[in-house]
Amino acid sequence: MADLLIEGLTKRFGGVTAVDNVSLHVADGEFVTLLGPSGCGKSTTLAAVAGLDRADGGRIQVGDTVYFDAARGLYRPPEARSCGLVFQSYALWPHMTVADNVAFPLTLRKVPGPERKRRIEEVLALVEMERYAARYPHELSGGQQQRVALARTLVYHPAILLLDEPLSNLDAKLRDRARAWLGELRTRLRLTTIYVTHDQIEALALSDRIVVMNGGRIAQVGAPQEIYDHPADPFVADFIGTTNFLPARVLTGAPEGGKAVLELADGQRLEVRAERPATAGSRVTLAYRPEQMRIAAEGATGATDGGAVLRTRITSRAYVGGLWQVGLDLAGAPLRLETRQPPRGEELHLWLPQAGGILFRGGADAAA
């Protein structure tokens, strides 16, 4: 195993900068996820590490081996890099059995027969596919084929593992099972891993750290709970989980950790604990997760239970099994509430906590 160091990585396609001065250190044995929407640069970063795309600038090093250094004109081709790469397409040889597919990279490397046999048995047991060694890919489910693709990568003991949307071709239930299995395998292997996905659940469930990318740059790096609870900006807050954004004006300012009074567009007011300094008269956007909000008790008005009760209008309601997802309009801002209580009528009194919301500078545009 080895650590991965990326410094100032830049990749352009014509006039488009797909990866813009990205720097990242992945420790030995760490599982790091590159997360973001399509076109954010995550797969391009992975391809540059694998050597499939030659970067325009920066440096990539794994352990003591330099893979790429633009300043020195150094570029190591993919076959000379000890990277294990698994794509979203399984890319198995249809005319080969499972065992032969897994053996293929060892055959290319001229690994002796007895050692080759030992490694194949070992890695198929690791991915729980030893019973299927004699089967062909068309005789396997999508999840089983993905396990074979992973086994074929692990069998030659790569220094780092690169996974590019490996579960995206699976249906929802199979994807959940595959994610749980991959999490268990990750714990056993402790192999330095870069995982690319646009699926926030996968990122939160599997990662030691998450790298959120936007427009070719890193928006935030942190542990899953840190990213979820303390997003650096509205983009991260909106991309990780579901977030409600409330544009407001600061009536009473507060330092970091102090209490600020905000006024919404319809004149309703609430007091919040400011995680960031809030300046009187400034425009801000207040962000809440759906699970932080609740329907207020019957007859509750004004500040109560360490929060504020505000009038909202119900715009939609849907029962999704155990929960109601309720669309609300609060001072012109669309909100989503999740509750076990069936909503009644056309209006709803909503409780928002004083602490837990996040203040971002700027109005509605900050959350766009």
Results as ranks from 00 to 15, higher is better:
332 G>V: 13
64 D>S: 14
251 L>T: 10
302 G>M: 10
55 A>H: 06
262 L>H: 05
158 P>E: 09
75 Y>F: 15
6 I>E: 01
63 G>Y: 13
205 A>V: 15
51 G>K: 02
340 R>V: 04
334 P>W: 01
61 Q>G: 08
125 A>C: 04
73 G>I: 05
92 L>K: 10
362 G>S: 04
50 A>M: 06
45 T>A: 00
292 Q>L: 11
206 L>P: 01
21 N>Q: 09
192 T>E: 08
303 A>S: 10
293 M>N: 03
173 K>V: 15
81 R>N: 09
171 D>M: 12
207 S>F: 07
161 L>Y: 06
126 L>P: 02
347 E>C: 00
257 G>K: 09
242 T>C: 06
24 L>K: 08
148 V>I: 15
97 T>W: 00
60 I>C: 06
154 L>R: 10
276 R>V: 07
188 R>V: 04
226 E>F: 00
117 K>C: 02
7 E>N: 15
274 A>S: 06
81 R>S: 07
132 Y>K: 07
103 A>M: 05
230 H>E: 03
80 A>Q: 15
24 L>R: 07
297 A>Q: 14
87 F>L: 13
367 A>G: 07
166 P>L: 11
243 T>P: 03
77 P>K: 11
267 G>R: 14
326 V>S: 00
345 G>K: 05
311 R>P: 00
31 F>H: 06
368 A>Q: 09
249 R>G: 09
102 V>S: 06
309 V>Y: 11
97 T>A: 00
9 L>I: 11
160 I>S: 13
303 A>M: 05
226 E>P: 01
74 L>P: 09
244 N>D: 07
254 A>W: 01
21 N>M: 00
203 A>H: 02
242 T>H: 10
358 I>Q: 03
340 R>W: 09
296 A>T: 12
169 N>C: 13
14 G>N: 11
321 G>D: 09
165 E>T: 13
191 L>M: 11
202 E>C: 13
366 A>K: 00
69 D>W: 08
76 R>P: 02
4 L>I: 15
90 Y>V: 14
347 E>R: 12
8 G>F: 05
22 V>G: 01
128 E>F: 06
239 F>W: 08
21 N>E: 07
94 P>R: 10
20 D>H: 11
9 L>G: 13
331 A>E: 12
56 D>G: 12
119 R>E: 08
140 L>W: 04
367 A>V: 02
55 A>D: 05
20 D>R: 08
11 K>Q: 06
